[in-house]
Nucleic acid binder design. Structure first.
Lengths: 202, 202
DNA sequence: TCCGGTCTATCGATCGATTGATCGACCGAG
DNA sequence: CTCGGTCGATCAATCGATCGATAGACCGGA
């Protein structure tokens, strides 16, 4: 009953957010005009500014909350887990599942970093670094305890992350491959890359 | 002696091309203004149009020639090579080496596809598809002959390519890791991913 | 039950700045 | 005297952002 206008059924603030994610992901931040955004959110370009301070701040908020959510989820997922193989499994499954569930949001996070102002960029990159440290620590642990065999752990970490990030570029929900199967397959690939034994030894 | 102005020592057309690659890679196509480009190429914005028909066509040319060069090199590299493991090795080494030698150009190719007009996009995506088919065929061959063990070859191909593409995002020439060592490491990772035996069995 | 006041949400109109692109003029080498 | 190369000036269009105004919901006091 609070809804007065049938403009999509969702509250306006959420419509702006969703439209921004979709447009920034598909056309890029600089490729998306304030009027494109307004049209997609079913608002005038003036009304837009009731829900965002600035176009750049809208982008920064999207990226910051998305990355923070990933970091929080990963921290929770690893809580109490000490086995490096299990830790790597969980990191990959969480990462891939998220990227497959929200490929648009992820693409914005991955591709629009240098559209941010220096201040926003510092925040975002700081969160991302904290997240990637979870991966570094896991790989280092695995090497120390001997379950991983890989030279150049730093490079391997980058290769792992790039591989997992790529999912957001091509995965389309509703395809033949489900999110869960996809995540399992990536976890297997990750184990192979670091030289850990496969999940079900044939 | 042909050089009349000391504007960087290079001919103007090449300066435009180089500046475009650098700016498109770091600030994005839509984030790069015609005046930024002119300044970086040490020309007026009007003179720019003696070396390009349109900003978009300049981008399309950069992407098309870069991708075509990669496809040609790969085709030549695979000529006569039938062993799937050797083929995969060569594909990875070529791909990674190129991405490490010219990360800026590669970033443009990878990130600015949807800044193209539909016509240009068709061309570029067509070349890219032909290139990726080399990878698909190699993986299929390896599976058929039994040297590769991987379920879901299509997904594994995507994971491989995303991993190798990622190099352009973080590699900086002159770092501690050389291009050749990097390429070898990636070839090893690729072998592990498809389940092929490592190069030097310890 | 009505009233004045406040707040949120929305808009059309418009701001100055910048966009990609074009024009005519000029310059120096051949 | 021509002509490839270069430029300042400028075009219409669009950019991100702001303005004042309006409509309606809600609230406390008469």
């Amino acid at each position: 009953m609070a809804v007065t206008k049938p403009a999509g059924g969702k509250p306006a603030g959420e419509r702006v957010h969703r439209a921004a994610v979709r447009l920034f992901a598909t056309k890029g931040f600089h490729g998306t005009g304030i009027r494109d955004l307004a049209k997609a959110a079913d608002l005038s370009s003036a009304s837009l500014y009731h829900y965002m301070p600035t176009k750049e701040r809208l982008l920064a908020d999207i990226m910051r909350t998305s990355l923070q959510g990933l970091l929080d989820a990963a921290t929770g997922e690893l809580d109490g887990v000490t086995d490096p193989v299990e830790r790597l499994d969980r990191l990959v499954v969480l990462h891939v599942t998220r990227h497959a569930r929200e490929p648009l949001r992820t693409r914005v996070v991955d591709n629009e970093v240098d559209a941010l102002t220096p201040a926003s960029r510092r925040d975002v990159v700081g969160i991302r670094d904290a997240y990637e440290k979870l991966w570094s620590d896991t790989i280092d642990d695995g090497l120390r305890s001997g379950v991983f065999t890989t030279t150049r752990p730093a490079t391997t970490r980058l290769a792992l992350l790039d591989m997992c990030n790529g999912v957001a570029r091509w995965f389309s929900p509703g395809g033949e491959l489900g999110r869960s199967d996809l995540a399992d397959h990536y976890a297997d690939l990750a184990r192979r890359m670091v030289g850990a034994p496969p999940k079900q030894p044939r």
